[in-house]
């Protein structure tokens, strides 16, 4: 500290005698050193006062009083600064924790896209922030049945991610790919309803694909309706349902419907992040997606997903506002 005081005196003295850029620059660099050594603002003023007293012998009494006054009032400033620094440190700690949590979530919710014979499956799921509030769960018993769950938890970030882990374990415990979709939703609803608070819920579309008969059986709990493209008719069908979101009421019953898929038919399952055209209200989102998918139906399912995502990113100027998930199954 003594050395710092002496250095400061020299720098200040040089500047008083010659107010050039170089001397000012030296002073600015010196302050950086003081900041590194955690010297408080009031201590800087105190150093300045002492240096000035040494340089100018007959410094008026009132100037010294004025400095003392400034030192006192700057104490509060110094405290605020310390508080700010400690907040920055805490913020950094939280950022690191979030990174770790996101990594854990990625591992937990990792999805492997099955590759059964006779069915082409593609998927893209892109979180808006670090943690994803969307989740896709596949189950394939390597025999006749394959199941797909596309899920969206209300909200984003950490609370959504925690809820999603619960959904994943719920789905895992159901174990069999051949369960009825309506049954799966009923069980999950019970589980979620017991565990979440009032403003929280989950939307899910659950489908089971019979690889022998090419029948897709689906159920929806408040989820964005899937799109079914019937190739022979060259027409889309909206797989609409008015059944309730998961987690709102206990003992909800769900229904299920069958679709027979023929060659070149495809089904698009998605979350509401895909159809949220907040800033492009001149477009009908579902119509737009239908056309996009149609224009790239010659591609395989994965390429279709990637292509639709890319086109929508362009449409929204690379500012998608929600977690974004599309699954395409194509016969």
């Amino acid at each position: 500290m003594e050395q710092l005081k002496l250095d400061y005196k020299t720098i200040l003295s040089n500047y008083i005698h010659n107010q050039n850029e170089r001397n000012l620059y030296i002073g600015q660099n010196f302050i950086k050193r003081l900041i590194q050594k955690n010297v408080t603002p009031e201590e800087v003023i105190s150093i300045h006062k002492q240096a000035l007293e040494d340089i100018i012998e007959d410094l008026p009494e009132y100037t010294i009083h004025a400095y003392d006054f400034l030192i006192e009032v700057m104490v509060h400033f110094g405290l605020k600064l310390k508080e700010h620094q400690s907040l920055l440190m805490k913020q950094e700690e939280l950022r690191i924790e979030m990174e770790v949590a996101a990594k854990i979530q990625n591992t937990l919710l990792e999805t492997t896209i099955p590759n059964p014979e006779g069915l082409d499956i593609g998927m893209i799921s892109v979180p808006l922030r670090k943690m994803n509030g969307d989740y896709v769960h596949f189950m394939h018993d390597h025999k006749r049945f394959l199941s797909i769950a596309v899920t969206d938890v209300v909200g984003k970030g950490v609370p959504a991610a925690l809820c999603m882990s619960m959904v994943k374990y719920g789905l895992d415990t159901l174990e069999y790919a051949n369960s009825n979709p309506s049954y799966v939703l009923e069980v999950l609803n019970q589980l979620i309803e017991k565990s979440v608070d009032d403003g929280m819920f989950v939307s899910m579309c659950y489908g089971r694909y019979d690889l022998e008969k090419d029948i897709f059986t689906w159920s929806s709990a408040g989820h964005e309706p899937p799109l079914y493209y019937h190739s022979r008719e060259n027409a889309y069908y909206d797989l609409e349902s008015k059944e309730l979101l998961l987690g709102i009421l206990p003992d909800v019953k769900y229904s299920q419907k069958d679709i027979k898929l023929n060659d070149n038919d495809f089904i698009i399952l998605m979350t509401d992040g895909v159809t949220d055209f907040r800033n492009r209200e001149e477009f009908d989102p579902r119509q737009y997606i239908k056309e996009l998918a149609l224009s790239c139906r010659h591609l395989n399912a994965q390429e279709m997903c990637d292509n639709i995502h890319k086109q929508l990113q362009v449409l929204h100027n690379y500012k998608l506002e929600d977690d974004f998930t599309i699954v395409i199954i194509k016969k």
């Binding site: 009032d198 403003g199 929280m200 819920f201 709102i248 949220d276 907040r278």
Partner: peptide, 17 residues
């Protein structure tokens, strides 16, 4: 003029209360 699922959550919570 706009509402997303977070908004829906607010009305669900209020409806439950």
């Amino acid at each position: 003029s706009y509402m997303d699922s977070t908004g829906l959550g607010v009305f669900v919570a209020f409806y439950k209360r």
